[in-house]
Design a protein around this nucleic acid. Structure first.
Length: 548
DNA sequence: AACCCTTTGAAGTGG
DNA sequence: CCACTTCAAAGGGTT
């Protein structure tokens, strides 16, 4: 459980996650990188099929050049759809550029220097390492100098100047690509890799795979090849104070469906009401955070039959055989204490309505993507609030669970007494008396002695090891963390730039040197981007939201 | 109606 | 100990 260090702790920036970057990216993307991936849906479909076939072939032994060898733990897509999404993403971005990793970092990079790209379009690993090294050096920058503060002044004045309506009628779908990529990659390097990965369903640019991130970490001009990369492969995100570091690559991003008219609500997203901090005022009469606490105030005894009945920790654990029907009834009686909401869930509950209002989106999946990115864009202080709330939730949950078993015991005893009184010990180990509803499954009936209970013990406010170690959502699921929507803000920035290109001089060339990213409202950009892409996806994939 | 999708984090389980 | 799985919320979309 993430636990904030005590106030005044100077360790906020310390536990940055180490991401085991792999050099697999280059090879992996060779196949995908070849395809131009110009957003042609048909081509994409056929390619998708092709890749799927290749994958099957690969699985059967033949190692397709377009496919990666199986033993890639980090590359394991747990679900078929993940793979499909990945395929789509590769098709769309060429599998290379994964977007400018981090928004809000005060130092923007510049890729034209020294062409970090290898002839095949891949980025020199050394370059990436060098840059990462630089970022570590930048860790010493005081928190006050970071984006969090600088971004506070809303850059709405900038955003509002940006014509957000794409020129759908005049622009070729590849216009952004042509406009920017050609200019800045005159060497002819395929611009396809400059595109962010796009979720096939929502159209939301998805975070890149960790293995694909490193090559695109911007290079500091003077740093290339100069600094050894002792820390080179460290996770690039959350380098400082929880503020993701984004950068904008020249050449921008090619959105597969750029010629999308932004609707009114989207335009409104550009307005200044979009505060990066977005910490909504506390709702009235609710939790300090404004988040209602259903599990606390009004514990809903929501029955989830399938889940409950499947739980090995239920009555079956007592060794008392019951007919499916009776088991079901028993389960129905058993109040289900929902899991406590974690920090992100709390954040979601709080921010969902706002995102829905700002976006015309209603699909929770898309909204959750937005929220996920916003979550990562939050400063640690902001996230800390939710982590603290989550910690309290868990405490309360544990307390409820402490009470629950006793109640369960009473109910069960009375129930058994009124029934057959069949000795439950019949099927139980001697040392496991039937009056203990504790489940090996760690069900809601766990007795107080469980680690979680101890962990959440009010008497022990000191954070557990895991709490202390968890740097605000940075420790688990490396690959997922690495996705971190690194590129989203920068992508959006470039997108905004692209949008403004028709009436304003393209800002992208200006990005060839560091600029204060504080001029952009990161969160706003994120949401705009996601909204746009989600809308695009729907318009482009009206009935093809799922590649299944 | 049931499930899927999508996110992050906590917790449980199995090797 | 680590990797993996499940489940919390949400609601439109899909089957």
């Amino acid at each position: 459980m993430p636990q904030l260090p005590p106030a005044g702790s100077d360790d906020l920036g310390a536990p940055d996650e180490l991401i085991p970057f792999q050099d697999e990216g280059d090879e992996q993307d060779k196949g995908a990188g070849r395809s131009s991936a110009h957003g042609d849906l048909d081509e994409l479909k056929s390619s998708l099929v092709h890749e799927s076939e290749n994958r099957r072939a690969s699985a059967s032994g033949s190692d397709s050049e377009a496919e990666r060898p199986p033993p890639q733990p980090r590359e394991s897509f747990q679900k078929p759809r993940d793979y499909l999404a990945e395929v789509v993403r590769r098709q769309q971005d060429g599998g290379f550029f994964k977007g400018p990793p981090y928004p809000g970092y005060p130092f923007l990079m510049i890729p034209e220097l020294g062409s970090p790209y290898l002839p095949n379009g891949a980025l020199s690993p050394g370059g990436a390492r060098t840059y990462l090294q630089m970022k570590w050096l930048l860790l010493d920058v005081p928190a006050g100098a970071t984006l969090k503060d600088s971004r506070s002044p809303s850059p709405a004045h900038l955003l509002n100047k940006v014509p957000v309506v794409q020129h759908a009628h005049h622009m070729h779908p590849l216009t952004p690509l042509i406009t920017y990529s050609s200019d800045h990659f005159s060497s002819g390097s395929p611009p396809s890799h400059l595109s962010p990965e796009i979720d096939p369903k929502t159209g939301i640019p998805r975070p890149p795979h960790p293995s694909e991130l490193s090559p695109y970490y911007p290079l500091s001009p003077g740093a290339v090849g100069q600094i050894p990369h002792a820390l080179g492969w460290l996770a690039p995100h959350h380098f400082r104070q929880g503020q993701p570091v984004y950068s904008i690559l020249p050449g921008g991003f090619r959105h597969p469906y750029p010629a999308l008219a932004m609707n009114a609500s989207m335009s409104s997203l550009m307005s200044s009401r979009f505060s990066p901090h977005m910490v909504p005022p506390p709702a009235h009469g609710l939790h300090p955070s404004g988040i209602p606490h259903p599990t606390i105030v009004s514990p809903i005894v929501k029955q989830e039959p399938t889940q409950a009945s499947m739980s090995p920790g239920g009555n079956s654990a007592l060794g008392v055989w019951k007919s499916p029907g009776s088991v079901k009834k028993e389960e129905e009686k058993k109040p289900h204490i929902k899991k406590p909401l974690n920090a992100f869930m709390l954040y979601m509950k709080e921010m969902r309505a706002k995102v829905v209002a700002e976006c015309t989106l209603k699909e929770s999946a898309a909204i959750n993507q937005i929220l996920g990115r916003r979550w990562h864009s939050l400063s640690r202080e902001e996230q800390a609030k939710y982590y603290e709330l989550a910690r309290k939730e868990r405490q309360l949950h544990s307390q409820k669970r402490e009470k629950q078993p006793q109640q369960q015991i009473q109910d069960m005893e009375s129930s058994l007494a009124s029934k057959s009184k069949k000795p439950c010990v019949q099927y139980l180990p001697i040392e496991k008396p039937c009056d203990s509803p504790a489940s090996s499954h760690g069900s809601m009936l766990d007795l107080p002695a469980t680690p979680s209970t101890a962990l959440a013990s009010p008497a022990a406010p000191a954070a557990t090891h895991s709490e202390q170690a968890q740097p605000l959502s940075l420790t688990t699921k490396p690959e997922a963390r690495a996705q971190l929507s690194l590129h989203s803000a920068a992508f959006l920035s470039s997108k905004a730039a692209a949008s403004s290109s028709s009436s304003l001089s393209s800002p992208l060339p200006l990005l060839s040197r560091p600029i204060p990213f504080a001029t952009m409202t990161h969160t706003a950009l994120l949401t705009v981007e996601v909204c746009i892409n989600a809308a695009n996806a729907r318009s482009v994939f009206p009935s093809q939201s799922r590649f299944q």
